[in-house]
Every structure is written in structure tokens, then in C-alpha cells.
Computed example of a mutant assay.
Amino acid sequence: MGGEKAPVIVDGAATNLRERVGAYVALTKPRIIELLLITTIPSMIAAERQVPSLGLALATLVGGTLAAGSANALNMVVDADIDAKMRRTRTRPLARHMVPTRNALIFGIVLGIFASAFLWVTANLFAAVLAVVAILFYVFVYSMWLKRRTSQNIVWGGLAGCMPVLIGWSAITGSIGWPAWVFFGVIFFWTPPHTWALAMRYKDDYAAAGVPMLPVVAPQTEVVRQIVLYSWGMVACSLLLLPASSWIYAAVAVPAGVWFLALAHRLHSRVLTGADAKPMTLFHMSNVYLMLVSIAWAVDAAIGLQVFGWPQW
């Protein structure tokens, strides 16, 4: 405003309060957290079969945000060396030495402890335990073990990203119902097409960092074949919710699934014919698909029972 230029942050420790706060916020990867939280509220609504209390919903979102932020910050500590080698990630705080590694580690641990304690007090112990499991799995299983060792890293490491569904459901019921497990499966199958499409675009980055993402170690034809297979698994899993839903969910999930499969097959066809693959189209549309299906599940859960009636689970 008024011609004032924003401060330019160069490599090195953040020097003023605004830069320091921004650097610590960036450690939590806010954009990724937004995607995770898209699935938390629908799961809570489905468990409650109506809109849950505002207090519990906000508490679960806050606790889930802090837990995800903890996992992401600790992931950045583990990945600082490879983040510095990749164009897509070289602006992250630790890659640019804006935050001392020790401080980032303490920040991530404290955030995780506070998140679990907050969920225990405001929701229940089971939700808190699931949050701890998600953090530990993401850091130790995915970041420290799988990511640099196998092309299947994101397949199994992506399980941590499925946990918000279970946390949301357990915050309401103290347990996990089968619809939550089904949507857990939707996200499990969604994660590889979403991530591998991005990795196709940044294949050289991952190769330079020594991360064996599937597009780095396998031919493109095999990558898109796997994307198609997982896309079919995702859509099939989404349809398993139809017996516990009204036409509202079906009216969105079915056409959205057909649309996404068409995108996946088009990507496959482009690679086979040697055309420009344009994998980022699938990457961006995968976010739209997950949002649509999540909202449909939430809306159906909020009004489907009252209007149409549902079988009990």
C-alpha cells in the first residue's frame, strides 16, 4: 500500500517478527492442512448424522490443524537437505536457513504435544491417540523410512493423510464406524494419483534430490497405468458409501467419479501417444474431486436422514 515494497527475504535467519512468524507458519505447510481438514468436518457430520456442535467442530479442527502442523514441521526437519535441492521446495524455511533446525524440531514436538492434549481435553482420548499415531507415522514411517527408499513411499506413507477422517469420526463417537473406514479408503486410493501427477511434473527435482518417486524410477507408461488403477480403486471405494447414503451423495459421487476416471484415462492416452501429458491438470482436478465428494458426503449426512431416512450402522 502507498508504494511501500514488501520486505525481500533472502537466505538466512528471519530478522524481524513478521518474518519469524511467517517462517514458523510456513513450517506447518498451511495449504496441505487445508486439504486435510476438508475431510474432517464431513466425517464428523456423518458420525453425528447432523451438523455437530460448533464448539466440538472448532475444537477438532484446531486440534487437527495443530497435529498436521506438527507432522509437517517435523517432516521439514527430516527433509531439509532434499528440500534445498528441489525447485518446488527450495523456498521452505529450513531450506533457506530462516529457522534454526533445533528450533524447528522443538516447535514441531511442542505443537504435537499440545495438539494431542487439546484433542484429549476438548474431544476424547481416542481422537488424541489417533492424532499422535498420525504424527508418528508421517515422521518416522514416511519421512524417515519410506520416502528415500522405495517408489511406493507415497502409497503407504499416504496413510497419515487419511487419518483426519478417523479423527473427525472418533471425536464424535469415541470409536470408528465403517463409513469412516470407507472414506479412509477413498483418500488412500486418491493419494497416489494426486501425488504421482505432481511428481511427473517435477520428476527432475525428485531425481536431483535422490527421492525414488515412481515417475523417477519407472517409465511414464507404468506411472500412468498405476494412476488409472488407483483412480478406479478410489471411485469404487467411494461408491461403497451409497448403501448408507441418499440420492444426494450419489448425484455427486457418481458423475464426479466418471469425470475423474476420464481425466486419468486421458492422461494415460496422452502418454501412450507421445502427446504432452499435462499431468498438473489431473493434480489440480484431484483436489476438486476430493472436495466435491467430501461436501456431498457432508450434505447428505446432514439432511439425508431427516428427509429420506437411512439404515442404521
Rank of each mutant, 00 (worst) to 15 (best):
I41G: 00
L240E: 01
T101W: 05
M1L: 14
V299M: 01
L66H: 06
V110K: 02
D276G: 01
A23T: 09
G233R: 03
F184E: 09
W178Y: 15
N72V: 08
R18C: 06
N103Q: 14
I187F: 00
I187M: 11
A26G: 12
N153T: 04
Y249E: 02
S70D: 10
G274H: 12
I33C: 10
L290V: 09
A104P: 00
V165R: 04
W145M: 11
Y138C: 10
P164Y: 07
V288C: 11
L146D: 04
A95V: 13
G108I: 13
A68H: 09
L242R: 04
T273Q: 13
F118G: 06
W310F: 13
A131S: 15
G177Y: 03
L94V: 04
P243E: 07
R266K: 14
V293M: 01
D11W: 04
P192L: 04
G177S: 12
T191L: 05
R18S: 15
N16L: 07
G309K: 04
Y24K: 12
G69I: 07
R92E: 03
M144L: 15
A180M: 13
W297V: 03
V139Y: 00
L198E: 00
A127Q: 11
F260C: 00
V165Q: 05
L229I: 14
L290K: 02
F283M: 05
V141W: 09
M98Q: 15
A160N: 04
G304P: 00
Y230P: 02
S170D: 10
D300C: 08
I303Q: 04
H265M: 05
S245A: 15
T60L: 14
A197M: 06
W169Y: 13
